[in-house]
Amino acid sequence: MFIGPVGQLEGVYHQSTKRNAPLALVLHPHPLHGGSLKNRVTFTMARTFQDMGFSVLRYNSRGVGRSEGRYDGGIGEISDAAYALDWLQEINPHSSEIWIAGYSFGAFVGMQLLMRRPEVKGWISVAPPADDYDFGFLAPCPCGGLMIAGGRDQLAPEPSIRRLVEKLNTQRNVTVDYRVFDAADHIFSRQVRAISDAITDHVNTKQADFLPLEHD
C-alpha cells in the first residue's frame, strides 16, 4: 500500500536485484469493466519487464481492490498513475531509465502520464481505445514506443489504432513500433506469449539505442 491523491493505493512491486535497475510502471484496463492489477495482460506485461531485470510496479487505481476512492472518469486515474510513478522513483532514486506500459484504458492513462513526465524513456500501449478517447494530446509525443493491436478487436478496432500510429509517425523523432496480432480480440486470450515476446524485442532494441556510441 502507498499513498495516492485520495487515499491508499494497492500495488504489487518487484524489486530487481540489479543495481540502479530500470523501472516499469504497469497500468490495468478499465476499472468499471473488471480491470485490475490481476488482469492477465497486465500481469504478463509486468512479468516480462521483471524477467528483463526491471523493478516493476503494477497497482490498482482508485476504487479497485483495496485502493481507496472512487472511479473518476480518467482524470483522477491519471493522478493515481503520477503518484504511483512518484513512489517508484522515490525508492529507486538512481534508476537508469523509466518505462510506462498500459493495456486498454491503462494505455490511455499511461500515454497521458507520458506527456507529463519527460524522464520517461519508453512506452508500451496494448489495445489503446482510440475510438473512445481522443489521443490528440500526443502532440508532440516525447518519444517512440510499442503499440499492439488485435485484428479482431471490436472494443479497440485495429483501423483506429493504425490511424493513431500513422499520426504519431509523422512527428519529428518519433517512431512507433506497430504490431498487429490478426487473430486477437480485445482479451488477447491466446496471445499473451506473443505480447511478452514483442515487449522483450522492442525494449531490447530501444535499450541498445540508448547506449552511447563508442569513439576511436
Score class of each variant (00 low, 15 high):
1 M>G: 09
1 M>T: 11
3 I>S: 12
4 G>M: 07
5 P>G: 03
7 G>I: 14
7 G>D: 02
9 L>E: 04
13 Y>R: 03
13 Y>E: 06
17 T>C: 10
19 R>L: 15
19 R>P: 07
23 L>V: 11
25 L>P: 07
28 H>L: 07
34 G>N: 03
36 S>Y: 10
37 L>D: 06
38 K>G: 10
42 T>W: 04
44 T>I: 11
44 T>N: 04
46 A>I: 09
46 A>F: 11
47 R>Y: 04
48 T>D: 00
49 F>C: 03
49 F>K: 00
50 Q>F: 00
58 R>W: 03
62 R>E: 04
64 V>K: 01
67 S>H: 06
68 E>Q: 15
68 E>Y: 01
69 G>Q: 04
70 R>H: 13
76 G>M: 01
76 G>E: 03
77 E>M: 13
78 I>S: 00
78 I>K: 11
89 Q>Y: 07
93 P>T: 08
98 I>W: 02
98 I>M: 04
99 W>K: 01
101 A>C: 07
103 Y>L: 02
103 Y>F: 15
105 F>A: 02
105 F>E: 02
106 G>E: 02
109 V>R: 09
114 L>N: 05
115 M>N: 07
117 R>L: 06
120 V>E: 12
126 V>T: 01
127 A>T: 08
133 Y>N: 02
135 F>Y: 11
135 F>I: 09
137 F>S: 05
140 P>M: 04
140 P>Y: 09
143 C>S: 12
148 I>T: 06
149 A>V: 07
151 G>H: 03
154 Q>L: 07
158 E>M: 12
158 E>V: 03
158 E>C: 03
159 P>V: 04
163 R>M: 09
165 V>G: 04
165 V>P: 05
167 K>C: 12
173 N>T: 09
174 V>G: 05
175 T>Y: 06
175 T>L: 13
176 V>A: 03
176 V>Q: 07
178 Y>A: 00
183 A>Y: 12
187 I>P: 01
187 I>L: 08
188 F>T: 00
188 F>G: 02
192 V>E: 06
193 R>M: 03
196 S>M: 08
198 A>D: 13
204 N>D: 12
207 Q>L: 13
208 A>Y: 12
209 D>H: 15
211 L>T: 12
211 L>M: 13
213 L>C: 13
214 E>S: 12
214 E>I: 13
214 E>Y: 13
